[in-house]
Write a protein that binds this DNA or RNA. Structure first.
Length: 285
DNA sequence: CCCCAGGTGAATA
DNA sequence: TATTCACATGGG
């Protein structure tokens, strides 16, 4: 068991961070958050400024949650109006974590045209069936399977993980990642737009999934994923001419370019705060 | 049985 | 370029 005491100028809200929908493998059990990151099974809780955890060391925790990032400075830079200001006050402490790229990529391929509980289930099944069993801070757990493992799986087997029509895309991505073991390093070295185009060459990875991977795995905070909720919020607060309806490619680009210009280089952080502070009745639904 | 859920891709005009 | 539609699955 290890503890870290956060400084007053180091805002962090563990539950909002792990519960906001950016990650799919954490759950709360008896007041603790339990999850697998890479090959570690981690158990962590927060009491005020004190983080208590096992299964990982302080360096890992600081890196995963990016505790060195000056969050208040980031939030100040995007705090441009009452709408985003309210989201910031409501969710202050939410941090975008550093997800393992491969797991993040597959997770967001699994996240198209579905809901979050279903994504969690899919990722969990993939880990149970193809991951490595590890004994850790909370009993038996499973790592997220390496690309090689998923590349060898049959489509039918993958379908059994409730992937539905996404099974083929996951399998193709697995083969691609297995054949290009340095893919994440190459993506990381590219300019953001080029990295985005590169990711979008994969089947099942459109603008939204690519932006999520860039934001959540590669720390490209200017990325601004536009899902149905963000579209709704942006239409309501900033781009009323959008109205309702589906998000066409042109609209997607319109929204993300506006966000990038309006919120600045941490636009993705603004988006995550807007998403986190959303309500079901937003827009009068 | 309908619609929606952190979209995407193929077909069509 | 813009629109339309199917897609597996699960829940309301």
């Amino acid at each position: 068991m290890t503890t870290i005491t956060l400084r007053p100028d180091q805002p962090f809200d563990l539950s909002r961070t792990l519960g906001c929908g950016q990650v799919f493998r954490w759950e709360t059990v008896d007041g603790w958050w339990q999850g697998v990151v890479g090959d570690r099974a981690v158990r962590i809780r927060q009491d005020g400024p004190v983080l208590t955890f096992e299964g990982a060391d302080g360096a890992f925790v600081a890196d995963y949650f990016r505790l060195a990032l000056d969050l208040d400075a980031v939030l100040a830079s995007v705090d441009r109006d009452p709408a985003i200001g309210a989201a910031i006050r409501r969710c202050r402490g939410l941090r975008i974590v550093r997800q393992p790229p491969w797991e993040c990529l597959v997770s967001y391929i699994c996240a198209t045209n579905t809901n979050i509980p279903a994504v969690r289930r899919r990722v969990s099944l993939l880990a149970e069936r193809y991951g490595e069993e590890i004994e850790g801070a909370f009993g038996t757990a499973y790592t997220f399977p390496a690309a090689e493992m998923l590349a060898e799986a049959g489509c039918e087997e993958l379908r059994d993980c409730r992937l539905g029509y996404r099974a083929g895309a996951v399998r193709e991505a697995a083969r691609w990642a297995a054949e290009n073991p340095d893919w994440a390093e190459r993506i990381a070295a590219l300019p953001c737009e080029d990295a985005r185009q590169e990711l979008m060459r994969l089947r099942g990875v459109g603008p939204k999934a690519a932006d999520c991977v860039l934001l959540f795995a590669f720390g490209r905070y200017e990325s601004f994923p536009v899902d149905v909720w963000i579209r709704r919020i942006m239409a309501q607060a900033y781009l009323p001419e959008l109205g309702g309806g589906a998000c066409t490619p042109a609209e997607y680009d319109r929204i993300r370019r506006f966000a990038r210009a309006y919120f600045g280089r941490y636009a993705g952080y603004a988006g995550e705060y807007l998403y986190c502070s959303r309500t079901r009745s937003f827009g009068g639904g």
